[in-house]
C-alpha cells in the first residue's frame, strides 16, 4: 500500500515538471500564472502524501493546509496585478506604443 502512495508522489512530481514547461516557456504572462497555480495544487497533494510516507500525517496536514491558502492568495494577487500591467516589463511595451502613435501623428 505504501508503495502505491510513493508511486503517486512520483507521478505527481513528473506532472509538476511537465507544468514547469508551461511556466517557463508560456507565451503570455497569464499562462505562467495558471501553470504556477496548477503546480501549487499538486504540491498541496504531494505534502499530504509525504505525511503518510513519513508517518507524521498530523504535522504535514497543517503544512499542506497553509500551502493551499497561500497558493490561492498568490494566484489572486498575481491575477489582480497583471490585470492592470500587461507584462513584467511594462515600460518597453508602452514606449513602443508611444513611438508608434508619434510616428502616425
Amino acid at each position: 500500500m505504501e508503495t502505491f502512495f510513493i508511486l503517486t508522489i512520483v507521478f505527481l512530481g513528473l506532472m509538476v515538471i511537465l507544468c514547469l514547461y508551461r511556466a517557463v516557456f508560456g507565451p503570455t504572462v497569464m499562462d505562467r500564472i495558471v501553470a504556477v497555480g496548477v503546480i501549487g495544487t499538486k504540491t498541496t497533494i504531494i505534502l499530504v502524501l509525504l505525511g503518510i510516507y513519513y508517518k507524521r500525517i498530523e504535522m504535514f496536514v497543517d503544512i499542506s493546509l497553509a500551502y493551499a491558502l497561500l497558493n490561492f492568495i498568490t494566484t489572486l494577487a498575481a491575477a489582480k496585478f497583471f490585470r492592470v500591467r500587461r507584462s513584467i516589463f511594462p515600460g518597453v511595451k508602452f514606449l513602443k506604443d508611444r513611438r508608434q502613435t508619434n510616428d502616425s501623428a
Binding site: 497569464m30 490561492f72 491575477a79
Partner: peptide, 24 residues
Amino acid sequence: FIIFFIFHANPTATHAITKAGLDS
C-alpha cells in the same frame, strides 16, 4: 477542510485569472 477549501478556491482562482486575461 482542505477538500472543502480547494472545492471553493479553485473555481474562484480560475475566474480571477480569466477576468484578468480578459481585461489585459
